[in-house]
Nucleic acid binder design. Sequence first.
DNA 1: GCCGATTTGTCCGTATGTATC
DNA 2: CGATACATACGGACAAATCGG
Lengths: 240, 240
Amino acid sequence: MPRAKYADIYRDLKTRIETGEYEFQELLPSENHLIQTYNCSRNTLRRAVSTLVTDGYVQTMQGKGVRNIYRPAPQTTFTIGGIESFRESAIRNHQTPKTRVLLFAEITADQKVSRRTGFPAGAELYYLQRLHYLDGRPLILNHNYFLKEAVAGLTKEIAEYSIYAYLEQELGMAIVTSKRVMTVEKMTQIDEKYLELGDYNCLAVVSSQTYNGDGIMFEYTQSRHRPDYFCFQDNATRHV
Amino acid sequence: MPRAKYADIYRDLKTRIETGEYEFQELLPSENHLIQTYNCSRNTLRRAVSTLVTDGYVQTMQGKGVRNIYRPAPQTTFTIGGIESFRESAIRNHQTPKTRVLLFAEITADQKVSRRTGFPAGAELYYLQRLHYLDGRPLILNHNYFLKEAVAGLTKEIAEYSIYAYLEQELGMAIVTSKRVMTVEKMTQIDEKYLELGDYNCLAVVSSQTYNGDGIMFEYTQSRHRPDYFCFQDNATRHV
DNA sequence: GCCGATTTGTCCGTATGTATC
DNA sequence: CGATACATACGGACAAATCGG
């Protein structure tokens, strides 16, 4: 399946912006101009541009034009808005990932687990504890809960490499939406044991519920991040 | 100016979902059905639905339908993805906001300020320190930098109520995009003095650059949150 | 396994409104 | 006022995925 046209245009404009073809605050060519460059319809171009808007690359102004508001990230950011596996984040930042599986268990969700994860009570789950290293430093302690029927065949070996790669490439699963909540929590004994927290006594916690292409929630994960390496990017637009 | 049609449809569907008209995991009526109910074109309806997708309310599935994946938030969340003033957040959660202005100064950005905030060196700025209370508890310590030429007439009195309300309602400014970075930082002396941190030794920090309708960055703010009341929601979609 | 009906995804062309200059 | 630019809305065509007979 060839990639969609609007996605091609989006990618092309995005790389042009990232490589500095347009100055910060400069106006992009007008819609009509871009329609001719890409030989596409107005709707198709507008879809590409509107994706750039939600990604925080440009800002449209009625009657004026489209302004470039992209600035390169000042520091290497570990996580950005978007669903990205640990491996993918690491590679994007040119760092070496490693994952150690501390626990690989099969459990049945009781009331307590159900309340915490959002899985129905009685659901058959894999429960994993994984420690993620970046360039040799332990940075993230993950508590993963996977719906067993949705991720059949998961093994400890897969969990040591990349679960997402397995789900997408082997099982052909489409991963679509993830609802996340960020909080700051006091460290626990297990945090203290595995993460090198120094004199921090708390850490950044990202709890996420992830849905597959069938709209089924198949994963609940609590990621406990060492605070000095935690950086989470986000882009918000105001719609009243 | 009457509200756009797609926005009306979006709101109607959203409240129907929120009020439980559709079960969690239930399919919504098909596009064709909804087109007839709302008496609109296919594009208009699809725009409304796609907004629901990015907001994490529903999930579309080609060939199958549109699935409701909305669940009411388990706890009162202080901040969600989207630009919201402190007052607005408080009112949404049925809590009483109060703001105390600790500092109101006019400064010129030097190199150091420029690097931190993203304003050009030499820019004329307002610099404010504000303490936000919720139901009497001090929760957030804000360091605000506003571009003076964009927020003319700002006073301490306005800053004690709501700066955003002033900008939007008095100055007619449109607030559009905000780029945010979330980190966890060690507490400083001023944090310790004003926020009741208990035995936490660090806090959640949200740094944001906000752009107005002209695509001009007019605000840089660093919000330092007391960790036990900090909760940040986010919704992510995977697009390869 | 095939076929047709249903449902969402992509793309196009056009008309009209609104804001800016 | 007219020209330019983005915003909204409509309708139609075809593709791709799913499901039931």
